[in-house]
Design a protein around this nucleic acid. Structure first.
Lengths: 154, 154
DNA sequence: GCTTGAAATTTTAAGCTTGAAGCAATTCTT
DNA sequence: AAGAATTGCTTCAAGCTTAAAATTTCAAGC
């Protein structure tokens, strides 16, 4: 007896089911992280993302680069940086030789604040993904890495 | 020689890496779907989600139930349903015996419109998850299912 | 019947998000 | 060097999202 025929329809449904499950898990984790950030640091995920991107680049990033790294619209970054700057966590610095662009970087206060948040963030994720051992994590990561969606330009 | 010691730190980092990758893939797929919905149907993901929830329940759902199923705030659902109702795709129906609640259901036009969109949506997901065979899909699904985040109440 | 409390929904304020339009500065072309 | 296209950023309109406050209605308890 041969193996059962793979119905052409099944694969599509299976992928749809996987997508819905990924979406649900991701949203759940995001919601948990958002609430934690709000309650413990009176902050938000977008703010965290911006600060995370800036931490690595001590000389700062252009708005341009920031929006490309985070994969969000440039108009979006403007607002988030505005609010972070109001709070004294980041600062806009003029770029010599190009008066159109500005460089954004963490202030010392922003750097300190983010360091604390990042540590908490990692431990929250660690708790939320409880039950995933290193092997699973690595395995899922590999599978996800195969998706076209994970291969886009940085 | 014994197996390498599992550093306590490694697992946490590995989970963090997995989370960041899941987040990136999910956002990428969401962005693609959002754009498709906008260009081809002049619609949005939240509208799609609401209509999807309503399709199964031909008698409709209370705002209450809708917001619980979609896991979004009730105030949020109000706005989305408002706009769908403006477009004649859903309708609010009074519930006899309780003047506080309303039942929302797809209009025939909404039902037709969603059927077309749902078909396109499935094929988009199928393309976006190209490279994931049925076995992979099933496997990742199982792993995700183990997460505490996927075990919450429906 | 009246009051108190709970339930269903809407409203509100603040922030996030996008795509498109608008501005200013730079670079390219001729 | 003048005009044209490009680049970098902000502004804008519309919609999504949440948490919290406000409204209206229902359900008990007294």
């Amino acid at each position: 007896m041969t193996a059962p025929l793979p119905k052409p329809e099944t694969l599509s449904k299976e992928r749809l089911r996987l997508w819905l499950r990924m979406l649900r898990v991701t949203r759940q984790v995001e919601a948990a992280l958002r609430e934690k950030l709000r309650l413990e640091f009176d902050s938000t995920l977008p703010r965290f993302d911006v600060m995370a991107a800036l931490l690595r680049e001590r000389e700062g990033l252009k708005m341009n680069e920031l929006s490309r790294r985070l994969r969000v619209s440039n108009g979006n970054v403007t607002g988030i940086v505005d609010r972070l700057a109001d709070d004294g966590l980041v600062e806009r610095i003029a770029i010599e030789g190009d008066r159109r662009a500005t460089r954004v970087r963490l202030t010392p206060a922003g750097c300190d604040a983010f360091t604390v948040m990042a540590q908490a963030h990692e431990s929250w994720v660690n708790e939320l993904l409880d039950g995933v051992d290193a092997e699973d994590a690595h395995h899922i990561g590999e599978l996800l890495h195969r998706l076209p969606a994970d291969t886009g330009a940085r």
